[in-house]
């Protein structure tokens, strides 16, 4: 087996720039977790099915387990760790707390980031839109009801906060 050639990448994660050489086969998820320590990127299935590894790539939610790190070259990435501002939680995170939208929490980072993507595109989502937007994020603990409630509450909160 030939030694794999390393590929230079440069990207921004949660507002901080990273530059380095990466083995091409390294998935973005493993790169974020192992090289950069963003372990909020959870791995549930490693083949694109569960959504636990979701991150925002230039603002759009994607699954980092089926993206190569080299493909993120030049991109801006947000992981769950980059959502809260210091002590202040993002309204969606806060709503997940308030509505008890989690149990073991393993799906939560992916759920929250998928909801960020949704609310950016549809600030007033219907329940059906919320369910469709989260359809690719599996939760094995909660049964989803509180998750949907939390997203809906977060949408309202963001709206009221933005009103002058």
């Amino acid at each position: 087996m030939k030694a794999p050639d390393l590929v230079p990448v440069s990207l921004e994660v949660n507002g901080v720039r990273f530059e380095g050489d990466v083995e091409p086969r390294k998935t973005l998820a493993d790169f974020l977790r192992e090289e950069l320590g963003f372990t909020g990127v959870n791995l549930g299935c490693e083949h694109g099915v569960c959504g636990a590894c979701s991150v925002l790539l230039d603002g759009a939610v994607v699954r980092s387990c089926i993206l190569l790190a080299v493909q993120a070259d030049g991109c801006k990435i947000t992981t769950i760790e980059g959502l809260a501002r210091e002590e202040k939680l993002h309204p969606i995170q806060q709503a997940f707390l308030d509505h008890h939208a989690l149990q073991c929490g393993f799906c939560t980072p992916g759920m929250v980031l998928a909801a960020v993507d949704l609310l950016k595109r549809s600030p007033h989502p219907t329940e059906i839109q919320i369910r469709e937007a989260l359809s690719g994020n599996l939760c094995m603990c909660t049964g989803y009801v509180n998750i949907v409630r939390a997203v809906s509450a977060a949408a309202e909160r963001i709206q009221t906060a933005e009103k002058p």
């Binding site: 694109g48 939610v61 469709e132 690719g136």
Partner: peptide
């Protein structure tokens, strides 16, 4: 198109 996978899949 909206019936293809999920938003995260359609984003890529």
């Amino acid at each position: 198109i909206p019936q293809i996978g999920h938003p995260a899949i359609r984003n890529r």
